Simulated assay, not measured.
Amino acid sequence: MSRRQPPRRGGRPAGGRRSGPPRSRGAGRTGQVRSGGSSRRSSGSGDLGGKQIEGRQAVRELLLAQRRRVHEIWISGELEGDDGVADIVAIAAANRVPINYVARSTLESAARSEAPQGVLAHAGALPAVDFDHCVAPRPGKAPFIVAVDGVTDPGNLGAIVRSCDGAGVDAIVLPRHRAVHVTPTVAKASAGAIEYVPITVVSGLPNALKRMRDAGIWVIGFDDAADRQLFDIGDLATEGVCLVVGAEGAGLSRLVRERCDMIVSIPMLGRVSSLNVSAATALATYEIARYRRPSS
């Protein structure tokens, strides 16, 4: 399909490598893990944070991914010998990661998420990847990107990352300012998906969207009041596409909305006017994935 310029429709903004077991509990659902090779690091983007990881699933995936160094793991002393953390202990031992059993009060005082589940890890920072790598064409696969505009709630970002992993998104683009990056709550809410989905940080999202358009990627924003619906994009879903989601309430910023090729809405059939941004992202990414399913 030749690239065209559909009308922009405005409105109210809305919103490594281990050869044998143990395996990630999510491996059967998400397929092969995307590696985090050093060639993809961005000299300009730097690190995303994520030096402290909390929660059993997030720590488990941190160990399994082997994308970055894990310095030590803290486990609440009352969980020593508990089956619920046995696989974490086994994976850590196999990778020579020290485990320290500490008092529950000590662990909870150090935690920065609401419920660390008695497990906390200290690791090297999660590396951001290069923006050019994210938008580069891949043989046999059109780019599938999600850009996040002004989302500051860590629970929402974590859920977005988890959905992106499940739907096969190639990369997530975050603005450097006025946005949350990787915190313990983000890592926990993502259930460890931050270890697998490449994330890049850009100094200006509008300029990044322009560069994607110049690279032949369709940029599709979401707005409650848009005339077009997500389900109307059709075959565009099989081309290079970037979905742009905005913070709840504020929605897409003006400059970001102006850089979109089209603005679509998610139809709401009940009385509530919109979805949570992470729920909207889940629905939108899986709609793209549905179109991209291999024909049987």
Results as ranks from 00 to 15, higher is better:
P7A: 14
R8V: 12
P13K: 13
G16C: 13
R18C: 12
G20I: 06
G36R: 15
S39F: 14
S42P: 06
S42K: 13
Q52E: 14
V59S: 06
V59F: 03
R60H: 12
L63D: 02
R68K: 15
I75V: 15
S76I: 02
L79V: 08
G84H: 04
N95E: 12
A103Q: 08
S109F: 06
A110M: 06
P116S: 07
V119K: 04
D130W: 03
D132W: 04
A136M: 11
A136S: 14
P137V: 11
P137A: 13
P137E: 11
A147Q: 07
V151R: 07
T152I: 12
V161R: 03
R162A: 14
A167V: 05
G168F: 01
D170F: 00
V180T: 15
V186W: 00
E195W: 01
V197Y: 01
T200N: 09
A208Y: 01
A208C: 12
A208L: 10
K210T: 12
R213T: 11
A215L: 05
W218D: 10
D227T: 09
Q229M: 09
I233P: 00
A237H: 00
T238F: 00
V241Q: 02
V244L: 07
A250K: 07
M262Q: 10
P267N: 10
L283A: 10
T285W: 00
P294Y: 05
